[in-house]
Design a binder for these strands. Structure first.
Lengths: 234, 234
DNA sequence: CGTTCCGTTGAATGGGATCAACGATTGTGG
DNA sequence: CCACAATCGTTGATCCCATTCAACGGAACG
């Protein structure tokens, strides 16, 4: 299911958005020393089990993961997708148990930080403390992001736009996206039927807003995609 | 619009859920000294203007507030309601500007904390730092709470159940609720038409799940209300 | 006393879910 | 290596839930 791998925050391309952001060079070594494990996972590997006790925060080093929440009725819901640089587990600080399971969507690598040690270190490193609060704050914004969408078109456009923006934030292409997740995962995440995803993607294609081939998407008209989200005017 | 009022965390009934949680007695005085202002607001007062620069966190001392977000198309959306003890502004730490406006729903009181000073203080007070992270983490959970609901019935039941739980958390009644907000505000918050709110409340009443008179609600059958949320089985 | 907003009710419409079927892809085991 | 199963993605037809439009009584307010 997983195998060890080398880690080194100093040379990691994601340090600009990940935990080390704002942390000084010398201090970085102390943060690095705290990374207990860096593990490789493969598609469908379950990394975190929902309800298990909270001990670690995780940072995505490469690949993609999804968070899946199971309710008392046995219904599954994808609560989020995690890209490289994302911090996972911030919501569990309060609840003390992980609120969802974490599953790899493709071959992916995860860095692991023990939270108690992180807290001890951040007490001595104001920059780390500040970054922890910033990331936690960012997570609140992410969670609130999808509240605007009313129609299925707006929901899906918002999802794609968001994925595009997050890609850009990481220095990846904002127009060339690889959807590592299935249509069902997308549907579950934004709260609609997979059939509707299909139909609206088709609609976007016939309007020349994007081209999609299997799980490779090319955004042709970012401006009209943004308008489709219902968040901006023409 | 607002007038000064006395503040004193030590004797505040909300210290068990508010910022002071976990903070020692002597340390509490230093936190108290940091409260710059405690102001009284009245219905419809705008306390925070969306997009204004982030400087302070706020804690609700009494009453109720709503957060309202305006998008580029001029559409308004209620993104949250704030009860006594709630911390407001945690999402703005990342964005550096407030992402929504804050409006009083009734005569209410707010405590104001300068964030920079709070950070300086928390560097010396691990308990305060821990509470800031806990509260931020809690906010992530709140934002994710409504993702489960599919139907209008589930959304509204979830909203009422949530309000009831938050009331209980504060030592108030979990069955006797005062809805300080309008039906339109509720509708905007959970993403449905105010007419539908009316119809489903009527349905809940004829099923003897609750009784509602103007803005006073009495929950008769919390168990069946929970089932209506679609989060639990019978 | 008129005006405005709030809350409710009725009737009609439509958007998205649901059900069903099918080809394509992936994965499995003999 | 291939037959088979299972999942994925798409398309079509139907239905139902929630929005929309419209109207009205009541309360709050100036």
């Amino acid at each position: 299911m997983s195998s060890p791998a080398k880690h080194n925050c100093s040379v990691c391309s994601l340090k600009k958005i990940c935990l080390p952001t704002g942390v000084g060079k010398d201090e970085l070594e102390r943060l690095e020393a705290l990374v207990q494990d860096t593990k490789v996972h493969h598609t469908s590997d379950e990394v975190i089990r929902q309800e298990s006790p909270f001990r670690n925060l995780y940072a995505v080093k490469s690949g993609m993961y999804k968070s899946v929440k199971l309710n008392d009725l046995g219904e599954e819901r994808v609560v989020g997708f995690h890209l490289p640089g994302d911090i996972i587990g911030l919501d569990a600080i309060y609840t003390k148990t992980y609120s969802s399971s974490l599953v790899a969507l493709t071959t992916s690598v995860l860095c692991q930080f023990n939270y108690d040690q992180l807290v001890l270190l951040s007490a001595k490193m104001p920059t780390l403390q500040a970054q922890l609060m910033r990331l936690s704050s960012k997570e609140i914004n992410i969670a609130n992001a999808f509240q605007n969408a009313q129609t299925a078109e707006q929901k899906l456009a918002g999802f794609i736009h968001n994925l595009s923006a997050r890609n850009a934030e990481r220095g990846f292409s904002s127009t060339q996206l690889i959807l590592s997740m299935s249509r069902q995962d997308i549907a579950s995440h934004i709260g609609m039927a997979p059939e509707t995803i299909s139909r609206i993607l088709k609609q976007f294609q016939s309007n020349d807003i994007l081209i999609i081939n299997k799980r490779e998407m090319k955004i042709l008209d970012p401006a009209r995609l943004l308008i489709s989200t219902g968040c901006a005017h023409a």
